Simulated scan of single mutants.
Amino acid sequence: MPYALEHHYVQTNGIRLHVVQAGPTNGPLILLLHGFPEFWYGWNHQILPLAEAGFRVWVPDGRGYNLSDKPTNTAAYNLDELAADVVGLMDAAQTPKAIVVGHDWGAAVAWWVAATYPERVERLVTVNVPHPAAMKQFTRQQPRQMLRSWYIGFFQIPVLPEFFSRLGNWSALARTLQSSSRPGTFSADDLKLYRTAWSQPGAIRSMINWYRALARHPPRRRAQRRITVPTLLIWGAQDRFLMREMAQPSIDLCEQGRVVYFETATHWVQHEEAEAVTNLIISG
């Protein structure tokens, strides 16, 4: 049967998240977590196909993004809080477990949920972000990865990143999406929606605070180094930001893991190879 996108607000972990939902209410819950600088729309190609496959699909705007609450303190964006938001969504859905899928920052959060709340994760699917231990090792030891991650350092500067992001009707963020993806991946209509999301009061500061919290407020929750839940890592090999060499070491840290490469796709593989990524999420 055809499904429509439902827009809801859900209380979780002391804040209110805007959550797009679709699919049968009694279907297995699947959470799709977006990254920077996207919002729920980053999964627009997957939502309805997953719903039609029988899943109950919840796609939140991460805290600080678009229509979700935007705490003002940087510490509110540390990984422990972001993971607790995800677990709180499962509680709100009254389900003990969910399939957790994440891209970019959403993948970093998904890894952390699987490492700290493994009993709440049915399956883990991460897209173009490595296991946190692999990311830490490569960032410290590989000059090429350090160069690719230059923007993380830039985002630590107060005020300036927000100022540059707003210039020219968000031209830097729009240009980053377009220049790092295959031609035509993000249409003019897509970018109009992104600009509206970025323009929400307090959004750009909150979005950047995810990076600031990573450096200033490291997580404290005890995490398992080895991921015990079934794990699929999807990797667009033409990623401009993250080296593919981090993918296999990430899977080596998983008891039940595999990696699937898309050789001609970029960091934005769920947009560029939408149907194939959807099918992988369904099949695990």
Rank of each mutant, 00 (worst) to 15 (best):
P2T: 01
H7R: 06
H7N: 12
V10H: 05
N13W: 10
V19H: 05
V20H: 04
A22S: 14
G23R: 02
T25Q: 15
L31Y: 04
L31V: 06
L32W: 12
L32H: 14
G42N: 12
N44S: 15
Q46H: 10
F55I: 04
V57K: 01
P60G: 06
G62R: 03
Y65T: 12
N66F: 12
D69T: 07
D69F: 07
K70F: 10
P71G: 00
T72M: 10
N73D: 13
T74R: 08
A76W: 01
E81H: 14
E81Q: 15
A83D: 07
A83I: 07
D85Y: 08
L89T: 03
D91Y: 08
T95E: 09
A98E: 09
I99D: 00
V100M: 09
D104L: 07
A108F: 07
A108P: 07
W111L: 12
T116C: 15
Y117K: 15
Y117E: 13
E119F: 00
R120V: 04
T126N: 03
V127C: 00
V129F: 10
Q137F: 10
T139F: 10
R140W: 01
Q142P: 00
P143S: 06
Q145D: 10
L147D: 05
L147A: 11
I152K: 12
F154G: 04
F163H: 12
F163Y: 15
L167F: 03
A174I: 04
Q178K: 15
S179K: 14
S179W: 10
R182Y: 00
T185M: 05
F186E: 03
S187G: 09
K192A: 15
L193P: 00
G202E: 07
G202P: 04
A203M: 14
A203V: 11
A203F: 11
R205I: 01
I208S: 02
W210N: 05
W210M: 03
Y211A: 02
R212V: 05
A213M: 06
A215P: 01
H217I: 02
H217R: 06
R222L: 14
A223K: 12
Q224P: 09
I234V: 13
W235I: 05
G236T: 08
R244I: 06
A247L: 11
L253G: 10
E255P: 04
E255T: 11
Q256N: 14
R258V: 09
R258N: 14
V259S: 14
V259R: 13
V260M: 12
Y261V: 03
T264I: 07
V269W: 12
Q270R: 06
Q270F: 00
H271D: 03
E272P: 08
T278V: 02
I282W: 09
